[in-house]
Simulated assay, not measured.
Amino acid sequence: MKKIKVGVSSCLLGNNVRYNGQHQLDHFIRDTLGQWCEFVPVCPEVECGLPIPRESMRLVGDVNNPRLMTGKTGIDHTEKMKSWIEGKLPELEREELVAFVFKTKSPSSGMRKIKIYNEQGERISFNGIGMFARAFMERFPDIPVEDEGRLCDPGLREQFIETIFVLQRWRDAVKAGTAKAVVDFHTKHKYTFMAHSPQKLKELGKLTARAGTVKPEELVEEYRTVLHKLLKEKKDRKKNYNVILHIMGYFKNHLTAGEKDELLKEAQLYYDGISPVIVPLTLLKHYTMKYEEPYLLEQYYLNPHPVELGLLNHV
């Protein structure tokens, strides 16, 4: 797989673009995730023409349509930012980003819980969205987004990164231009999709069953719509436990009574929140390799992302 193209707030990559002339380097994003991602850095405030360093900004007025103003002098940079956004979004569309990671608390790039002030400088809300982040999410509703604060949560981090790897494989399948590529993609992600939504998995299964009767481009469009909805549904212990039990069924004629008991015990410990999912998955991968189950050998559920990321060790 080629590197996954991800937009990211420039300061998170160590670039000195913040209002105080500093950066906000996130080592996990730049140094770890960067081994598999090609980053497209974006700093709305600098790119719209503001200097480094500069007076800090704040959002003022209507929560749903605030103005971007300097905190002390009250200079209004709203129109400057809007004009830049209008030109930047088509540029980012051409980049074909798979995802975007925003900077928390930023009045331009924060995707959640941004402070809103009134004209007197009093905080009136904590539910604002940065001007650029809002415009980006409205323009590209199917592109997954997170901020570096939420990525500190192991569960959110794992699901976000799993999603971007799935979407990159999907884009590769689409570029192949055949119905067979879509069917292959679906087959290899069966248990990944089951862990998100058994119901949506059934919908996708019905679509792939029509692969030989519809035009590839029609299949792709219908499949894409359901796929994005499915990936927005969160995995949880109950769904993962259900998938683990399904996969165990492949080994019912292979395992000894003791091995079955061990696998069930580890699955239950995961379900009860005592151990991480990597424990039962490691056993399943071991038996998959040992008994050479061809269907499971191709399942991304057992290998959703590079092991070097260590994401399954904490969920």
Score class of each variant (00 low, 15 high):
K229S: 05
K252N: 09
E233N: 13
H228W: 00
L269Q: 14
P276M: 07
Y223I: 02
Q268P: 02
Y241V: 00
K238H: 13
E222F: 06
V243E: 05
K229H: 04
H254F: 12
I278R: 07
E222N: 09
D236K: 13
V279F: 11
E218F: 08
K260S: 02
L231T: 00
N253V: 04
A267T: 08
Q268Y: 12
Q268H: 11
K239E: 04
H246W: 04
K265N: 14
N242V: 01
P276Q: 09
K232W: 10
E266M: 15
L231C: 03
S275V: 04
E217F: 08
K265G: 10
L227A: 06
M248T: 09
T256Q: 05
V243T: 08
L263H: 08
E217K: 11
E233F: 06
A257S: 11
L255A: 03
A267S: 13
E262I: 07
G249D: 06
H254Y: 13
N240E: 13
Y241Q: 03
E266P: 12
I247G: 08
V277G: 09
D272Y: 09
S275M: 01
I274S: 07
L263W: 07
A267I: 02
V277F: 14
L219H: 01
Q268L: 14
K229L: 13
D272S: 11
E266Y: 15
K234P: 05
I247H: 04
K260I: 01
I278E: 05
E221C: 01
H246S: 10
H228K: 01
E266L: 15
K239L: 11
Q268G: 05
L219E: 02
P280I: 05
I274E: 08
P276E: 11
L269W: 10
Y271H: 15
E266N: 15
Y250T: 02
E262G: 08
V243G: 10
V279A: 12
I244E: 14
L255C: 04
K235Y: 00
I244G: 10
Y223S: 06
L230A: 11
